[in-house]
């Protein structure tokens, strides 16, 4: 029992960096959205949809999730008679993305053969 308990602790240590990864960003579609918003100052919904190749509904649901965590700021305005949704990475979103990149680098560099 003691041996099993010890093994479990070692396993937990190994997978610890994995559990530290931000799950909100780690989802592939959201990672792509965050990456695009990270490299630009701001973009509208149409631009992001074209660049990511996501459907309207899919992009919208991921953006809602990112907005609820405070990573993305969404502003709705009218350009003439047409509605326009402007998307921007918030400061906390930018910091979270930097942290995510750092964690991933650390984790992947730790994945050695030995």
């Amino acid at each position: 029992m003691i041996l099993i308990g010890k093994k479990k602790t070692e396993s937990e240590d190994i997978i610890q960096p994995l559990s530290d990864i931000d799950k909100i960003i780690h989802e592939p579609a959201r990672l792509l959205i965050m990456s695009y918003l990270y490299v630009v100052e701001s973009a509208d919904f149409v631009f992001l949809r074209n660049q990511t190749g996501l459907t309207d509904g899919n992009l919208s649901s991921h953006l809602s999730k990112l907005e609820s965590t405070g990573y993305v700021e969404i502003k709705k305005k009218f350009k003439g008679k047409k509605p326009q949704t402007i998307l921007k990475l918030s400061n906390s979103g930018r910091e979270a993305f930097d942290r995510y990149r750092e964690k991933m680098k650390q984790m992947l560099s730790g994945l050695s053969e030995k």
Binding site: E41, A43, F47, I86
Partner: peptide, 11 residues
Amino acid sequence: IPRIGFVKFGP
């Protein structure tokens, strides 16, 4: 712009 959307690039 109505087709590809609007974007502002970084510094």
